[in-house]
Simulated assay, not measured.
Amino acid sequence: MNFTKFLMVPLLASVFVGCNDDDNNEKYSDLTPQENKEMMEDEALKVFDSLEGMKDLKAMNLVQEFADLMEITGTSDSFFKSSVQSMAALKSDNGAVLLLKSGFDDDAAFSFMETFNEAAGIYTYVAEEEDWERTDATDQVTYKFNSDEGEVTVSLHDVTYETVSNSEMEDVVSDLVKSAVITLSLDDEILIREEFTALYDSDNVPTSLSEVLTIENYEITYMLSRSDTSVSLDQSLKVDGTDLLVMHFDSEGSFAYDDLPASTGIDQIPGFDFLEASNVSLTIGNYVLTGYANWKNFIADTKEVNIAIETEADARAMAEALNSNVKVVLKLSDSDETIATSDFYAYEIEGYEDMWYWDYSLRMAFSDGSYMDESYFQTGFTQLIETVSDFMESLENE
């Protein structure tokens, strides 16, 4: 079961369809929509600039060297494959790396400890032979090589696991990782540390997952917590100890093993009937995008609505249900001033061969009475969210 992708569905949906609080107490920003748009874009650019700066770190150059040696020697060590490839790609691609999840691919996870025990050892690169020389070790998988910068050590260690007892999983997964640490050090200095921890319930479903990736002065965190009635997800990017980007999601609903949908691909979720309410927030610099959705009431309010939207009445009913149960607010973090709030509306649009049809959409309402559609965020929040989502999906597919 692909839990990360399953849990990201309501997160990504809520960001754009995301609370039903009273607007009367909102304190609005004195800046015009255009002034806020320009400042918001500047904040988003700072995030991208910081991520671009990660490419030039000494640690990233050493990761690239290690990746090259793995390719030269034909080494296909599954423990390092995902993490090394993802970090090495950062030096050549423009994608934003905000989540490196655990560095173990699916093949290794299915029989993790068996694979770990087979690979355990200390491997030293011999340049003359263009190959690794192995010495015995039982508690680590470690690679050592000499760089122009000094001696480099890449190591997987401190691994613990639990045996799968859920009969529905036993055929495909024999054990689950509870903790693991990957480090890259230059001489005696650790430049990269990736620490993964997890707890599971009696059905072998995660109740908590934590991953902290430190690359020199950058820190990327991923925290997930789940119970039978709630789930929360937190991600952040820090540079020199200062938050640059923070994402939070929590939801109430039915998350017990027997209640989870049998199919969990993004395009296969049967509906939001297992959710009750969700909160989401995304902070970039001084700008905070928050959302709340009462899914339980929304489902009840749309029970008689034709979701195919064939008539004006369908479109207006859907927009009304969304406005009653879903809300997105864009605010300034330092002053708590509101810039814009969500407004769902019905509209008629010209289609194929002069045919007209009705639909509904989201726009943001400003204090001056003006409205703007999602293009208001196109070079700010939306672009960054899409970049993060694309990167996460690429990791899922490795």
Rank of each mutant, 00 (worst) to 15 (best):
A67R: 14
W358V: 03
I299Q: 03
E118T: 12
N146L: 13
Q268V: 07
L69Q: 06
E211D: 06
A262Q: 14
I122P: 07
D259Q: 13
D107L: 05
M70Y: 05
S361T: 15
F110Q: 00
E348A: 05
L45P: 09
Y352D: 15
A119L: 04
F104W: 03
F79I: 11
Y222F: 15
F196K: 04
Q383F: 08
M169W: 08
N294C: 03
P33D: 01
F3T: 08
N397W: 05
D258R: 05
E35M: 08
Y161L: 02
I269D: 00
A120P: 03
G351K: 12
K101S: 13
V164H: 10
D22Q: 07
Y143I: 09
S76V: 10
E38G: 00
E219V: 11
S155M: 04
D106P: 01
Y200I: 00
T379S: 11
T197Y: 04
M247K: 05
E43W: 06
S165P: 02
L209P: 03
G285P: 07
Y123G: 00
T32L: 09
V231C: 10
N117M: 04
L362Y: 01
R226I: 00
Y257K: 04
S342I: 06
L31D: 14
N397H: 12
A365Q: 10
F3S: 02
H157M: 10
V239C: 13
E162G: 01
G369P: 07
S82V: 11
S370Q: 11
A319T: 14
I192M: 11
D56T: 12
S263W: 06
A96L: 09
T338F: 03
N204C: 03
M318S: 08
Y347K: 10
S82E: 14
E52D: 15
L191G: 04
T153K: 11
L12I: 11
V15S: 02
N217A: 15
V159I: 06
S83K: 01
D22P: 04
N397I: 05
N117C: 04
E216A: 09
